[in-house]
Simulated assay, not measured.
Amino acid sequence: MHAFRNRLAQYSDIPDKVWNVIQDIGTKPGHFKAGADIIRVGEITDSLFIISTGWATRFRTLEDGRRQIVNFMLPGDIFDLQALARMEADHSVSALTDVSILSISPQKFIRKMRESGEVSSAFWWAAVQEESILREQAVRLGRRSARERIGHLLLELQRRMNGALGSNAEQLSLPLTRVDLADALGLTPVHVSRTMSAMRSAGLIEEHRGLVLIRDRQRLARLSHFDPDYLHLRKLDYSRFSEDTPDVPSKVV
């Protein structure tokens, strides 16, 4: 739960009493080897999951075998909230690396949400961030060039991993193949390779044995039109709101 707490702490300071409620939510550990399915399309999921360690991917596969990766799930991410409604999964989730997860019973989850408004707000923020990431993925695919897509995704993954680890590293451990990146970005593996080679030559990134070093974050952000506001990483100050204040914030900042 360490990565999950780091992630939630980006949204709001989590008092120990609130964190104790979250820890007491009742989780069951599990482990999946790289390549294993965590959720299969068409299944009715009976648990929510929090990733403790490792990377997973959410994707759809067409009838002819083509795959579209919708997003990558990192330590501290929670999925799939559709378990609350016992709906059939309309996508699949697979482990990209060895993955350790914590599963949560929907009944226990709902009970804790009812007991604590602060806990509910923390999980609500996690859902808001995931929705924002999915919206940005649509923009990435529809309007950005190949270099912009790759640079934007690298900056997003770096920012999210730093949040999960509580760090500010320029280096990103990237367990993704060129095929993974191509399936996420609507490109071919060859196009991904050529574009990343050009990015290395331009001094934007370095690669070495599964590690990507972003050499100039500001320059890459400018070239990729990367604005981290959609990740909602600036903390919400609860003290601005009180029971006597009817206004609801229009945007989480």
Rank of each mutant, 00 (worst) to 15 (best):
residue 211 L to T: 14
residue 229 D to L: 13
residue 207 E to N: 10
residue 185 L to C: 04
residue 202 A to V: 01
residue 216 D to S: 02
residue 233 L to K: 04
residue 243 E to N: 13
residue 204 L to T: 00
residue 183 D to I: 02
residue 175 P to K: 05
residue 188 T to R: 07
residue 175 P to A: 00
residue 246 P to M: 09
residue 209 R to N: 12
residue 192 V to W: 00
residue 232 H to L: 11
residue 170 E to S: 13
residue 192 V to H: 01
residue 185 L to K: 02
residue 237 D to Y: 09
residue 208 H to M: 13
residue 217 R to H: 05
residue 216 D to E: 01
residue 196 M to E: 09
residue 217 R to C: 05
residue 243 E to Y: 14
residue 247 D to E: 12
residue 180 D to T: 03
residue 240 R to H: 13
residue 189 P to I: 01
residue 195 T to R: 04
residue 248 V to I: 07
residue 221 A to Y: 00
residue 217 R to M: 05
residue 231 L to S: 01
residue 230 Y to T: 02
residue 214 I to M: 02
residue 200 R to S: 01
residue 247 D to I: 14
residue 188 T to G: 05
residue 205 I to G: 03
residue 193 S to V: 06
residue 206 E to G: 12
residue 248 V to R: 07
residue 185 L to E: 02
residue 210 G to T: 06
residue 228 P to Y: 05
residue 245 T to A: 10
residue 208 H to R: 14
residue 180 D to C: 05
residue 216 D to W: 01
residue 190 V to I: 12
residue 218 Q to G: 11
residue 174 L to F: 07
residue 173 S to T: 11
residue 234 R to F: 05
residue 175 P to L: 02
residue 213 L to Y: 15
residue 196 M to T: 08
residue 175 P to I: 03
residue 188 T to W: 05
residue 233 L to S: 07
residue 194 R to T: 08
residue 199 M to I: 03
residue 195 T to E: 08
residue 231 L to Y: 04
residue 181 L to N: 03
residue 191 H to I: 06
residue 235 K to G: 10
residue 237 D to K: 10
residue 237 D to N: 11
residue 233 L to T: 08
residue 217 R to Q: 08
residue 206 E to C: 11
residue 176 L to C: 04
residue 230 Y to R: 02
residue 206 E to R: 15
residue 192 V to Y: 00
residue 224 S to N: 05
residue 186 G to H: 01
residue 186 G to N: 03
residue 241 F to T: 08
residue 226 F to R: 06
residue 191 H to Q: 12
residue 226 F to K: 05
residue 196 M to S: 08
residue 205 I to E: 06
residue 212 V to H: 07
residue 226 F to G: 01
residue 208 H to S: 13
residue 217 R to K: 08
residue 236 L to K: 14
residue 172 L to Q: 06
residue 185 L to P: 00
residue 240 R to S: 14
residue 245 T to H: 12
residue 215 R to K: 08
residue 214 I to L: 06
residue 219 R to L: 02
residue 245 T to P: 08
residue 227 D to I: 08
residue 229 D to V: 15
residue 218 Q to A: 14
residue 181 L to Y: 03
residue 217 R to V: 09
residue 245 T to W: 11
residue 187 L to N: 00
residue 241 F to R: 08
residue 176 L to H: 00
residue 206 E to K: 14
residue 169 A to I: 11
residue 208 H to E: 15
residue 176 L to V: 07
residue 208 H to W: 12
